[in-house]
Design a protein around this nucleic acid. Structure first.
Length: 895
RNA sequence: GCCCGCGUGGUGGAAUGGUAGACACAGGGGACUUAAAAUCCCUAGCCGCUAGGCGUGCCGGUUCAAGUCCGGCCGCGGGCACCA
């Protein structure tokens, strides 16, 4: 072989690794290291986001393996979910066939990437072997009181007669029927995650190796608040509603109360609804908004006076109206609030809209009172009545004082509240894990017997009409009660797919066991030492997994040490690409009369058309980047490099209105066609090029833009390393005076690349490898010194570009496979520099520099600085006021 | 609407509060070649002939010293509980 040829060598090395069982995880006496990337949904095609995710995990896995750890690096499939059902509805076929077909396709696409995955542990969440164990745990959790049933609202499509996911509701309408969506109550299963709210919040402090922002997002999501819960006494309310409980985080603003408001889902609202058609109409209108918080918050704030009044707790003569308002959430607090327009933006808008008073809470000595959102002129501001005479202080203190005062007067009590709601897991869909219970007229809800698990999804279902096919499958649905054996109905709801992904990491420790986990295996492998995935999972998936680990511990499926299952978390950025768009001309029959079309699109029927990156040629026209259709260039026999011809083609496109616009980079998406298929990159350049490019340039946590130029540059660099290794392997140069310098550069490279990998700064590790390559290529050292350096290069590159590393290693006669070689260590003696160059600033501006021995005393440095020619020139005879010497870093002369 | 993050040359980015722009892409110049590709070398933030000045989204502050810390804006992105 005389040139870099990934097409032939990559497959060869992969076969050698497989044959040697290099990546099979083993429980032994080495310390273990568990690396996990968030497992993929089997959509059918891998995309660059997957490549980035798995490459990062692979770097860590291979690096840790070289460092002497017994590494677990598994892969599986998050295989239940709506897309499979949608595919069945649109194209026919069965979700199962679609899903397993996609898994096979994706695995085939992933294999050539050369990932160090232990494929013997692979599973899909839709395997009965997996979801059967999930059902067993559900039953355990039911017995442990961690699951319960209650009513909850869903999006209901009244035309299709089916439940819709939030993403299937578009502008308040069902995505297929177009009908206005309604909210409807169903009895559903819930996990008691809110019981763990305090614990899940406090434990965040211990997650030192999680990104700060993820911990903050979770803390905000859990939303701990301290407030006052108290009851208004009501006037004119229906029987049983003589008190109205409200919760407020701002009891100090109680004197600013203007109205009370309840959620449309509040029991009082429901009671009124049945009595008053006008209220019924309003509540129905409120329910036409979707269930998502975003939809509720963005909707126009509306309310309706119920006619009921409540007495202010501080003054029984002070009456407040009770509204039903569409922005009050039933799930938070008591589903009822008091409105304080002077101190809450939303309440202010509401009060303004319905002409309600805006009472003051504070008063200044000169009589100035607080107006909504206008800073007060007076500095000393005191509360009115409640907390009377107290100066207005920071929020927390005032709240604590207000709660104390209210409690002392017998008005309510201080309570701690959480925003976190229980996790509703019921889904009215087929392609999910069946909830293993049976509904019996006599016995109620009865769990399925464990020996009957798994409750398998039936295969004979159709998707020709909307709704859940399990509901209309009598032989599956109608069963005998496991308790009394009388005819009963199986639960037809399935579990939220988040349940599947909340414990898969634990299942990987014993993927095919007859119990959910095996103690010895879970003890050895848990926790996940490094978890890697997208920031979009920062809240839900990670919070649910943290809850599930606790629930699994309570039910005996995980050891206590695993209740925080992910020791370290890394959230990677997205892969983006620029977008190529042009205006698709409407089809015009006949001749376009009247000569050339002047400019621009024709009429209103023009619409944008997106083009795949592979179908365009991008080039520079002066300072401007332009693009033409590759097919047009080929037709006109224009080569990629013929700029003049490309410019001319672009100009003629422009004249005819079919010029291609380049839109700045955005997340790769099918609809915008700005996707690059990893398979074609691997086919054309090899896996190592894809891996090298995706690791270079951008920091892993940030978005990376895929560019063809960048991919080619990566390939060129790898080719250069290959040639350099080839050259060095054949070199017979004698030892030289430069050998020592190269050894020092090698030590530096080991230290820097190791630091880059350890710190999850792969882009910096890559940059250091570029530097090391440049140094080695220029070095005049002897053959032996160069071979030493090049072998270290192979080892340092091995986690990132493992195939090329094996090539280089074998060319230089390295022993065995580099994948099995221990990570190189830098000789500390070679890392020490004896002298240091200090920049000299005068008033913060760099004017000169001096090179001094590393440990020179600051006083000595000062003398040299003041004697420096440039310093003397700049000072112009003026004595400096101050001289700051930061040893080893910088000198600043202040005049 | 609420919560979170990000903003540095033409581009991706580097920089324990201490020389802003490492490394790379694209660009410019050169060598090699009949020519091209490939490869190698040099160059390069902006303004200025130079001296020098200006520069990390904008405005202000702290400091001997600010991309980095603090306050206020602007712009872009992610999440919002039935998408995975």
């Amino acid at each position: 072989m005389s040139r870099y040829d990934p097409a032939s060598t990559e497959a060869k090395w992969q076969a050698e690794w497989d044959a040697g069982g290099v990546f099979t995880a083993r429980r032994d006496d080495r310390p273990k290291y568990y690396v996990l990337e968030m497992f993929p949904y089997p959509s059918g095609r891998i995309h660059m986001g997957h490549v980035r995710n798995y490459t990062m995990g692979d770097v860590v896995a291979r690096y840790k393996s070289s460092c002497g750890f017994s590494v677990l690096h598994p892969m599986g499939w998050d295989a239940f979910g709506m897309p499979a059902e949608n595919a069945a509805m649109e194209r026919g076929g069965h979700p199962k066939d679609w899903t397993y077909g996609n898994i096979a396709d994706m695995k085939e696409q992933m294999k050539p990437l050369g990932l160090s995955i232990d494929w013997s542990r692979e599973f899909a969440t839709c395997d009965p072997e997996y979801y059967g164990q999930q059902q067993a745990m559900f039953i355990d959790m039911l017995e442990a009181g961690l699951v319960y049933r209650k009513n909850a609202v869903v999006n209901w499509d009244p035309v299709d007669m089916t439940v819709l996911a939030n993403e299937q509701v578009i502008d308040g309408r069902g995505w297929r029927s177009g009908a206005m969506v309604e909210r409807r109550e169903l009895t559903q299963w819930f996990f008691r995650i809110s019981d763990f709210a305090g614990e899940l919040l406090e434990a965040l402090d211990g997650l030192k190796d999680w990104p700060e922002k993820v911990r903050l997002m979770q803390a905000n999501w859990i939303g701990k608040s301290r407030g006052l819960q108290f009851a208004f006494s009501t006037i004119g309310a229906p029987e049983g509603f003589d008190r109205l409980e409200v919760y407020t985080t701002r009891p100090d603003t109680l004197m600013g109360a203007s109205f009370a408001a309840i959620s449309p889902d509040h029991p009082l609202a429901k009671q009124l609804e049945s009595q008053d058609p006008k209220i019924a109409e309003f509540v129905a209108e409120c329910r036409r908004v979707g269930t998502s918080e975003e939809a509720l918050e963005k909707a126009e704030k509306k309310g309706m006076d119920t006619g009921i009044r409540v007495r202010h707790p501080f003054d029984s003569n002070w009456e407040l109206p009770v509204y039903i308002a569409n922005f009050i959430l039933m799930d938070y607090g008591t589903g009822a609030i008091f409105g304080c327009p002077a101190h809450d933006q939303r309440d202010f808008e509401f009060a303004t809209k319905y002409a309600l008073p805006i009472p003051a809470v504070f008063v200044a000595e000169d009589g100035e009172t607080d107006l909504p959102f206008v800073p007060m002129k007076s500095e000393r501001v005191r509360y009115v009545r409640l907390l009377a005479g107290k100066e207005h202080q920071t929020g927390d203190e005032a709240v604590v004082a207000a709660i104390a005062e209210c409690e002392s007067k017998g008005i309510g009590r201080g309570v701690t509240n959480y925003r976190l709601r229980d996790w509703g897991l019921s889904r009215q869909r087929y392609w999910g894990c069946p909830i293993p219970v049976v509904h019996c007229a006599d016995c109620g809800v009865v769990p399925e017997r464990k020996e009957n698990l798994p409750v398998r999804l039936p295969d004979d279902v159709t998707f020709d009409k909307p709704g859940n096919p399990l509901d209309r499958h009598p032989t599956w649905r109608d069963v005998a009660c496991p308790n009394c054996n009388k005819p009963a109905r199986r639960e037809t709801d399935t579990m939220d797919t988040f349940v599947d992904s909340s414990w898969y990491f634990a299942r990987f420790t014993s993927p095919h066991a007859a119990t959910p986990t095996v103690p010895a295996e879970a003890d050895y492998w848990m926790n996940v030492d490094q978890y890697i995935g997208g920031i979009e999972h920062a809240i839900l998936h990670l919070l649910y997994s943290r809850f599930f680990a606790r629930a699994m511990h309570k039910t005996g499926h995980l050891p206590a040490k695993a209740i925080e299952p992910f020791n370290a978390l890394f959230t990677q950025g997205m892969v983006t690409h620029e977008i190529y768009e042009r205006t698709l001309q409407p089809f015009v029959s006949g001749l376009l009369l009247g000569g050339p079309i002047a400019s621009g699109p024709i009429g209103a029927t023009s619409r944008p058309e997106y083009l795949l990156p592979e179908d365009v040629i991008v080039f520079m026209d002066g300072d401007e980047r332009k693009a033409v259709l590759r097919e047009d260039a080929v037709t006109a026999s224009i080569s990629d490099g013929d700029l003049a011809a490309l410019r001319q083609l672009a100009a003629s496109d422009r004249a005819s209105g079919k010029d291609i616009r380049i839109i700045p980079s955005a997340k790769m998406s099918k609809s915008k066609k700005n996707v690059v298929d990893p398979v074609s990159i691997v086919t054309n350049f090899g896996a190592d090029t894809a891996r090298w490019f995706i690791l270079s340039d951008s920091p892993p946590e940030r978005d990376v833009e895929w560019t063809a130029a960048g991919a080619e540059a990566a390939y060129k660099h790898l080719s250069r390393v290959w040639r350099l290794a080839d050259e060095i392997a054949q070199s017979k140069a004698p030892t030289s005076a430069e050998d020592g310098a190269l050894d020092r550069a090698t030590a530096r490279a080991i230290a820097d690349v190791t630091a880059g990998i350890e710190g999850f700064a792969f882009n910096k590790a890559v940059a250091k490898l570029y530097e090391f390559t440049n140094t080695l290529a220029k070095s005049q050292a002897g053959a032996e010194a160069k071979r030493r350096a090049m072998k270290v290069m192979a080892q340092l590159m091995s986690p990132m570009v493992p195939h090329l590393a094996e090539d280089v290693w074998s060319m230089l006669g390295g022993e065995g496979l580099v994948v099995r070689a221990p990570w190189p260590k830098a000789d500390p003696a070679l890392l020490v520099e004896d002298s240091v160059t200090l920049p000299i600033q005068i008033n913060g501006k760099r004017r000169s520099e001096i090179t001094v021995p590393k440990d020179m005393a600051p006083a000595e440095v000062e003398k040299l600085v003041l004697a420096d020619e440039d310093v003397v020139k700049h000072l112009g005879g003026v004595a400096p006021k101050k001289l700051i010497v930061v040893p080893g870093r910088i000198v600043n002369v202040v005049v």
